[in-house]
């Protein structure tokens, strides 16, 4: 167990170092950091002095180490575009993204898992076939197109949902939440459905496939042969075996929700970090880009780590090693 976690921690650290290196390279080599900070008529000597003061003449490993130290202290530099500290910019927008992701993920899980279980138990029923066709459409339709269509139908034609922004928010000591106001919920519904739909269909297909697979195994047949009733077999025996792999992949999907959050935030002008990142890409605002990368890497790596450990805890074959 400890070995396993250590191994994963080493792997996680490797990922973070690689991403940090990437961010550092962007920071250091994309354009001239000095040129971004000074005006046109700064003298050459002044620039050189600034260069020396910023440590840009130090050996590269030293510069990287200093970069890492700064990052660990939460100092990510100033946004080129907005001239504000990047850390503050991101902190302001993080709650919007996290709330959107969690609502979308909940929709995906709460709808996707039951649909998948149903389709797995009755693979030939017409409802299952309907689910499958709908799910295929869900996987094939691009997220942004779904978002636009929802806006078109419910926002523009029917005018029953707002088409952009997150509505009124309440400030809870640095965390602005939209989940405490009606307009906040009203605003989050369309983006969350947009974002959750792909994940929902994905989870549904996964649960269905796993369920079908488990129901074919010998131990399920044996349980039937012993006369254990169907409900118990389906919902106690099969479901638990199904949920182990589903849990892993669903956890990883949380990462993909963050990724597609960028798209959804762009379509709905949702004031989250994804939108900020997109704007940073188009204006080549390097501090914002590299900080976003680091932040996302930390989130992904943590999710993966948690999923791995959960997997370890749930599966007795991993948890309890063979005594012999």
């Amino acid at each position: 167990m400890i070995r396993f976690v250590l191994q994963r921690l080493v792997q996680a650290a490797t990922v973070l170092i690689v991403v940090a290196l990437l961010a550092f390279v962007m920071f250091r080599y994309a354009g001239d950091p000095v040129a971004q900070m000074v005006s046109q008529d700064t003298t050459f000597e002044d620039r050189a002095a600034l260069r020396e003061a910023m440590g840009l003449n130090d050996p590269l490993p030293v510069q990287f180490a200093e970069f890492v130290v700064r990052v660990v202290h939460g100092n990510f530099g100033l946004s080129y575009q907005m001239g504000q500290p990047v850390a503050g910019l991101l902190a302001d927008r993080l709650p919007a993204s996290i709330e959107l992701s969690l609502v979308a993920f909940s929709i995906a899980l709460l709808v996707g898992v039951p649909m998948g279980v149903y389709a797995g138990l009755r693979p030939n029923g017409w409802i299952s076939r309907l689910f499958l066709i709908v799910s295929l459409a869900g996987i094939s339709l691009p997220t942004f197109f779904i978002g636009i269509m929802l806006i078109l139908v419910f926002g523009v034609e029917l005018s029953i949902f707002p088409t952009f922004g997150r509505g009124e928010t309440v400030d809870l000591g640095g965390w602005t939440t939209g989940l405490l106001t009606f307009s906040g919920w009203h605003s989050i519904i369309l983006p969350a459905i947009t974002l959750g739909l792909f994940q929902m269909t994905f989870i549904m297909r996964l649960v269905r496939a796993e369920m079908l697979e488990v129901l074919r195994t010998d131990y399920i047949k044996f349980a039937r042969a012993r006369g254990i009733d169907n409900g118990r077999i389906n919902f106690r025996y099969a479901l638990r075996n199904t949920l182990v792999p589903v849990m892993t992949i669903a956890g990883l999907q949380l990462g993909s929700i963050i990724a597609f959050g960028i798209v959804t935030e762009s379509v709905f002008q949702w004031p989250g970090i994804g939108l900020l990142f997109l704007q940073a890409i188009s204006t080549v605002d390097i501090p914002v880009m590299s900080t976003y990368l680091l932040l996302v890497a930390v989130i992904f790596v943590s999710i993966n780590l948690i999923v791995d450990i959960l997997y370890f805890l749930v599966d007795p074959r991993l948890r309890i090693s063979d005594k012999r």
Binding site: T217, Y219, I220, Y237, R240, N241, V244, D315, P316, R317
Partner: peptide, 8 residues
């Protein structure tokens, strides 16, 4: 394969 691995 005839015993469920997830249950004691």
């Amino acid at each position: 394969t005839s015993l469920n691995p997830m249950f004691t």
